[in-house]
Each structure stands twice: as C-alpha cells, then as structure tokens.
Design a binder for these strands. Structure first.
Lengths: 348, 348
DNA sequence: CTGAAAGCGCTTACAG
DNA sequence: CTGAAAGCGCTTACAG
C-alpha cells in the first residue's frame, strides 16, 4: 500500500496540489469550504506528510543529535530523559549516540550527525577527547552546538554546567568541618574539565583551611565501565600507602561505592575511621550501607536546559538573529548522609 | 556558507551531475580518471550528500525508532546501549522516546515515528497499554516492528523476550530449596505480560512443591518511578498482615531493594527471618547490604537481538522476500547472593 | 480564492 | 564512458 500524497488528495477532489497543501496548513487564502473538504479527506485517507520531502524543502529535520559517553549511568540517563522530554514538547526528536569515552568514536559520531543534517547537537565529551577540531567543524557549519557536563572551555558555544570547583570545595570543606585532617582525593581522568575542576576545588579547600596539600593522596580513577572496580582497587591501595587518611573526596559516586564496598570488606569503619564524600548523587547512594554523602548534580535539569538553549539558538539562526552563547550554571547541593560524621559546631 | 551539492562539483569539473553521482558511488560505468577527479574534489570541498534528498529518493531514512517505558533504569538503559551499538554497526541511527509507562503517550509516539518515516520500530510496552491498535497500525503500514520485554502476545510481530515464567519458577524454587515454607510475591501491574508470567511461574512452583497458593500473599507494586518506595511500603504491610512469611519473590530488583531497606530499618534479618529474591540483576543489587539474589536478565543482549531481527526484516521487505516473525527467547540465570540461604542438599 | 511552475538535491532508467 | 531527463513529495512566490 503506497502512502497517500498531496497529489492523491488533489486528484480525488479535482483541485490543485497547491491548494491542498495550503488548506492543510491553514493558509488564510483558501476558502473555508475547500479547507474543510481537504482536511476531511486527508483524515479519512490517513494522510501523513512525507517528512523526507518536507525536510528537503524546509532544510530542517526537527531532529537533534545527542552524544554521551555512557548510557548505563544514572547521571547521563537522567540527562537523556531531560533532553528528550523537553525536545518532545517542541516537536523535536532526539538521535542518541554513545561515544564510549572514545575520542575516535566521538569524531565519527559528530560526522554522522552532520551528514544526517540534524538541526543541532548536544554533547558531553569523552574522557579521551584531546582535540576540538570536530567540534569547531560543527560550529563553522553554523550548526548549533551545546556542551554539558564534560565541556571544552576553549570551544565557543553555549554550555550547561555546574560549578564543579565550588561543589568540590564545599564537599571537602564538609569533610574538614566533620573533623577530618588528612583527606585523600580519588579524581577522574586527567583531561576532562570537570575532573580538573573538582580536583582544584579539593585542593583549594585544603589550603584555605591550612591543611597541606599532598599530591601523594591524589589517586586517578578511570571513570568508565569499571568505576566500581577502580574504587575498590584504589581504596585498598590507599589504605596500604597511607593508613593515616581519615577522609576521601571522590570524583564520582560509583567509584565511592566501590571504595565503600572495599572498606566494608576490610572492616574499616565508615565514617568513624574514614569518611567518604562522593559526587553526583546516584540513586544507589541512598540505599547502600552506609548511605553516601554526595554532591547532588541535577541531571534532568541539565538536560532540559541544554535543549532549551539549543532550541533558542536554532530559532535565532533561523530568523537570522545574532546568536548569543550562554554559560548556564546550575545549582548543586551537598547531601549529607551516613558516610560522613556530623559537622562540629562553632568552628572558626 | 551553503552546503556543497552534486551540481557544485559537476559545474567545477564541467561534467554532468549524473556522472558525479555515479562516480561517488563507484558505478562501474565511470572511467577511473573521472572517478578520481570527482572523489578528490568532493573531499577537498568536504561534500556531504544531502540526506534529505537521498531519503526522498530511496524512501529509506536509515533511522529507527525506539520507545521505552523509562530511561533512568538499569535494564532499559542496557537495552538502549545494545540497540544503539548494533545499529551503529549497520549504519542506522536510533531515535529514542520515553513513554513514561503511559498508553496515551505511547500511541502519540508511535504516530510521531510513523510520520518521521523511520525504517522500523522497537518497543517495550507501557504498563498502561490496554489496546494494541496503534501497534497493528504499524504492521499494516508494512513497517517492521519488534517488541521486547513487555510484549503483547496477540500482536503479530517478532519478539525478543526471556522465559519469564520459567525464571520466576526457578527463583521461587530456590526459595523453597533454601527452606522457605511461606512465600509471598510482590508482583508488577496487572496488565504487562511479563508481570503475569512471573506471577504464574511463582504460583506453579508453589503448587508443584505441595505448598498451597495463598492469594493474600500476593501484593501488587506499580513499578514506575516509585518502585523503591513501593517496595518499602509493601514490605511493611506484609509484615503487619502476615508475620509468618519467610520468603518473598519480587518482580523487580528496585522494589526488592526497597523491601530490603524497610527490613533493615525494622531489624528484620535477611535471609534468616525472611529471604528475598529479586528480578533483573541491576548493578545496585550486587552492592547493597545484603546483596540480592536475583534473576539475571540480559538487557544488552536483548537490545542487540532486537536490532538484529529488525534489520533482518528491513532487508527482507526491501528485497520483497517473505517476512518471517520470530520469537527470540534469551537465557536467564539465577544469581545467588546473600539475601537467600544456602540450598539444602539431597531434597526430593 | 485557485493553480501553474520552479525548485529543494538526489538517483536511476535510458539513450547515445 | 557520459549525460539529459524524469521523478521522489513537498513548499511557496507569483500570476490570474
């Protein structure tokens, strides 16, 4: 059964394709009578505009692309949900690709999306990403690009982020306020901006509180598929290397949960012997034992904001208005749970 | 900057559009010299075929649609990953929609995808879905449709599932083998097929072991956003209603984790007082305390198989071959952990 | 109020 | 080996 076209309707009603097209789109210069006839027939024939033809004519696909490092991931799947829900409201569909934290794949996927002629792209960078040519390509093609979470500061486009440095500072300050004196940090890979910023926030909090920064207390965890294992491994290593550590600020909840598992196995008491603060507030963190103190990162809202900004820029470009890049910084908060002690009162 | 077209290349080289098109697609009837020239220029101009025009001509979009009930969900996000990874290999992109377990939304989304003219659709039904007209519409438009996990038995299309009944039977049998005599069941909503099948498996295991089936021991949990809370609530209720229960088989891990949280709070010992078996093997289940015995459901593989079958049917239709619907049943296994006791040996 | 016509950028059957 | 031409199904500026 071939799909119904405008010309099928035109033929049946003995009018022109032009008029059918205009009637369906409620142009003011079509008589109400004709409109009614056309619309009725379109309905009974179950007419559906051929999106391929519409796209070709309008040069728009009402589709956007999303590239994320990992899908099976509480934070990122929340972002996906935020983007999709917002896109749907505006009549946009979302094509999702997973870079697997690989720079090479990410480049290929950007290319795929450009070829597909999506109306815009939202991306969170792979840990691997060392070069931003592929991103600048998108911009030079005048295609809206929004980065979120793992961004590249040097790329000129809008960004949706949190204040990673401040959030990390506050998390570390909390450890200090609860009496920790020797605080380690499990950081993420070296390249991602947020991993750098969280590290800097940790360091600054120490220094501001007169605690010497000791690079030996900083462990790197590759936050990919094996985050949990990395957390376990590094927790054990930390204990061997530095048995005087009494607190750890950890880059990601999943790594923190690995550390907790290791400490539970070894009989190390949390928070009495070692306090732990994570980052992201995965759902899991509220149900493990002990529950994890962590930074709440609003994934769903970040997704929503990312799409909203993208939509704004798509419209601006379409109307030939100047495009303004924005840096949208969302609020985070520290969720205090069992993995840290109560803050001491009246500290100076 | 306008995108480069075939005619731009043709003009520059003073040859026809036809020849350019054929050269780029390596038609045998173009001279090697011309091919080389065309390909080189295409490369330097960074030519990208206009997918809208290609789609219009070929009537294919190399894009498929995926509708899932929830995205922030370990099982479903694993399926997404499986589908996307497989689709990418075959050059297909995936548009993802979330039905939020709503029948109305699901209907709208099917319509959206048909309008978008995706090459095929993969779906797991919403709990709400009572009627299958929208699905039969897809089929009558001769568009490939694959259902997975939450399927409708009556709809004639390929399906990727597990043997829910058998898996539930085995899970319940395990509770019996570990000495449980009075076993409750937290089931899912009434409509979904897998929720029904898991219930039937539970029931059959009881009967086969000479344990009377008691409908009062079956609690319904709406497995949506609030699964965890539902698990908590029902666990408390169960304890009030029937303090002699010594085992529970629970429809979904997240609900089971809620139940565990409630029992931990109340000081009810797991598995000594009550044993618990979940379903799905979420990552979380391996890190909570006690770790959860559960049925491993291969989400990633289900996604891969679903796409493979879809791809097969797309090809069959394209080549006017008869389309054969298949029911692909993937293996599950019971993962025994701390929430159940060791099986008694030499039982008859 | 209606419609003929051009054109979006491709692909492909056909002629030479 | 090359190319003119038709056509995929729309939209829209323009003429009447």
């Amino acid at each position: 059964m071939k799909p119904v076209t405008l010309s099928d309707i035109a033929e049946r009603l003995n009018i022109s394709i032009t008029t059918v097209s205009k009637a369906l789109k409620d142009y003011p210069d079509v008589s109400p009578k004709t409109k009614a006839l056309v619309k009725e027939l379109a309905l009974t024939l179950n007419y559906r505009p051929n999106s391929f033809a519409v796209n070709l004519r309008t040069k728009e696909s009402k589709t956007i692309g999303l590239i994320i490092p990992v899908i099976v991931h509480h934070f990122f799947s929340s972002v996906i949900k935020g983007i999709i829900s917002q896109a749907e409201k505006k009549g946009y569909l979302v094509i999702i690709l997973q870079s697997n934290e690989s720079y090479e794949l990410e480049k290929k996927q950007i290319d795929l999306l450009i070829n597909q002629r999506v109306d815009g792209i939202i991306i969170s960078l792979a840990n691997d990403t060392v070069d931003f040519k592929h991103l600048n390509d998108v911009i030079s093609l005048d295609k809206p690009l929004i980065m979120f979470d793992k961004i590249a500061k040097l790329v000129k486009c809008s960004k949706v982020i949190i204040n990673d440095r401040q959030a990390a500072y506050d998390a570390t300050q909390h450890l200090i306020n609860t009496g920790c004196k020797r605080i380690a940090h499990f950081r993420g890979s070296l390249l991602p901006q947020n991993s750098i910023d969280r590290f800097l926030g940790y360091k600054k909090a120490l220094v501001d509180n007169g605690i010497p920064y000791d690079p030996n207390l900083v462990y790197i965890c590759e936050c990919d598929d094996k985050s949990f294992e990395e957390g376990k491994k590094n927790a054990i290593k930390l204990l061997e290397d530095h048995d005087d550590v009494d607190g750890i600020f950890i880059n990601t909840d999943l790594v923190a949960i690995g550390a907790i598992a290791a400490f539970n196995d070894l009989g190390v008491k949390i928070p009495e012997t070692i306090s732990i603060v994570g980052f992201s507030n995965w759902f899991m963190s509220s149900v493990i034992s002990p529950t994890l103190t962590t930074v709440d990162q609003p994934g769903f809202e970040m997704g929503k904001e990312a799409f909203k900004q993208l939509f704004k820029e798509i419209r601006q470009r379409k109307n030939n208005l100047p495009v303004t890049y924005e840096e949208i910084v969302l609020k985070t908060s520290l969720v205090k749970r069992e993995s840290t002690k109560t803050e001491l009162t009246n500290r100076v």
